[in-house]
C-alpha cells in the first residue's frame, strides 16, 4: 500500500457545505443528531479542514451512523469498538483529523472498557458522546444513562437504577479534556468542538441529545432555567443566543476539584469542565519511541540468530 498524497489543500477551492454532503441522514424527524451533524460540519468549514484529511469513526447506534453523512473518510465499525479503530488510525496516520462518534450505550456500556483506556492513553482525537439516554436504534431499551424511573421495553416498570454520570466517570478516569454541550445550541456546540479539536489529546465532549421518538422528554430544549453555562477566559464561550437567558457560572477549567463538584451536582452545566494540556499522549510516546529507536537494516534481520 502506498501512502496517499497528503495535500494540505493550498490553492484548492474552499471547502463548502456542499462538499461535505454525502447523503441525507436517515434519522427520525426532530432527532438531535441533526444538530450535532450541522455543528461539526460548521466547524469543518470554519476551520477549512480538507475532507480527505478528516476521518470519522463510530461504533453502532443511531448516532454511529454519523460518519456516513459526511463526505470525508470514515469507518462505521462495530458496537462499542470505535475507540480501538480510531487509535489504529491515530497510530498509523497522525496527519489525519480524527473524530469519534459514539452513543451512550456504545460508549458507556458495551464500549466502556475502550473508553477507559482511550482516555488513559489520551491519544489525539475529538470524542463526541451523543447522549440521548436510551437505546434507540434497537428500539427503546434502558441505557447506562437512562434516568431512574423512566419506562423502557426492557425495564417497563421504570428504569431501575440511577444513571451513570458520564462526566464524573471520565473526570475520574483522568480525562485531559472534558466538556459538555447540547444538540440544540449550535454555536456553543461548534465552539466546544473547536476547543476539543485544539486540545492536544483525547477531547471528551458530552452532548445532550434529544430523542423525539422514544423519549421526547429527555431534554427540555425550550427552556433554559435548568442549566448553566460555564464561563472562563480559558473555557468555552457561553452560547450567544442563550447567554442572557441561562445562568453563567465562572469556572476555571484547570480546577479539577470544582469540575468534579459541578459534574456531580444535580444541575446541568454546559461548557469546559476540565482541561490539562500536559497529560502525556500514548500515540506521541509510541511515535517518539520509533523515532528514537536505533535503526536496523532489514537485510541483517536474522544475523542475531546465526550459529
Amino acid at each position: 500500500m502506498t501512502t496517499p498524497n497528503t495535500t494540505t489543500g493550498a490553492g484548492t477551492p474552499p471547502v463548502t457545505t456542499k462538499d461535505l454532503f454525502a447523503e441525507n441522514p436517515r434519522w427520525c424527524a426532530g432527532c438531535g443528531d441533526f444538530g450535532i451533524l450541522a455543528s461539526l460540519k460548521k466547524f469543518l468549514i470554519e476551520r477549512q479542514l480538507r475532507p480527505e484529511m478528516t476521518v470519522n469513526i463510530s461504533g453502532i447506534g443511531c448516532s454511529s451512523r454519523a460518519p456516513n453523512y459526511f463526505n470525508t473518510y470514515g469507518a462505521h465499525s462495530i458496537h462499542g469498538r470505535a475507540i480501538p479503530v480510531a487509535l489504529g488510525v491515530a497510530l498509523a496516520r497522525p496527519d489525519l483529523n480524527l473524530f469519534v462518534h459514539s452513543g451512550d450505550g456504545d460508549a458507556m456500556s458495551i464500549g466502556g472498557n475502550h473508553l477507559l483506556h482511550g482516555i488513559n492513553k489520551n491519544f489525539k482525537c475529538v470524542f463526541l458522546m451523543y447522549d440521548n439516554e436510551i437505546y434507540a436504534l434497537t428500539k427503546n431499551q434502558t441505557s447506562p444513562t437512562t434516568r431512574k424511573g423512566h419506562p423502557t421495553f426492557t425495564q417497563p416498570q421504570g428504569s431501575f437504577l440511577n444513571p451513570l454520570n458520564p462526566l464524573t466517570v471520565v473526570l475520574g478516569l483522568g480525562a485531559s479534556f472534558v466538556a459538555s454541550s447540547a444538540d440544540w445550541i449550535p454555536d456553543h456546540l461548534t465552539d466546544t468542538i473547536k476547543a476539543g479539536f485544539d486540545h492536544p489529546g483525547f477531547a471528551f465532549i458530552h452532548i445532550a441529545q434529544r430523542c423525539t421518538h422514544f423519549d421526547a422528554g429527555n431534554f427540555d430544549h425550550k427552556t433554559s432555567d435548568w442549566f448553566s453555562f460555564l464561563k472562563h477566559a480559558n473555557g468555552i464561550e457561553p452560547d450567544k443566543r442563550l447567554a442572557n437567558k441561562a445562568e453563567l457560572v465562572n469556572h476555571d477549567p484547570s480546577d479539577m476539584g470544582t469540575a468534579f463538584k459541578l459534574a456531580a451536582s444535580d444541575r446541568r452545566y454546559f461548557g469546559l469542565f476540565y482541561q490539562d494540556r500536559n497529560k502525556p499522549r500514548y500515540d506521541q510516546v509510541l511515535r517518539d519511541l520509533v523515532a528514537n529507536a536505533p535503526k536496523k537494516d532489514r537485510a541483517k534481520l536474522l544475523d542475531a540468530y546465526n550459529i
Binding site: I57, A75, P84, V85, A86, G88, R93
Partner: peptide, 8 residues
C-alpha cells in the same frame, strides 16, 4: 483494522 484502513 484502524491502521490497515489507513494504509499501514
Amino acid at each position: 483494522i484502524g491502521a490497515y484502513y489507513s494504509g499501514v
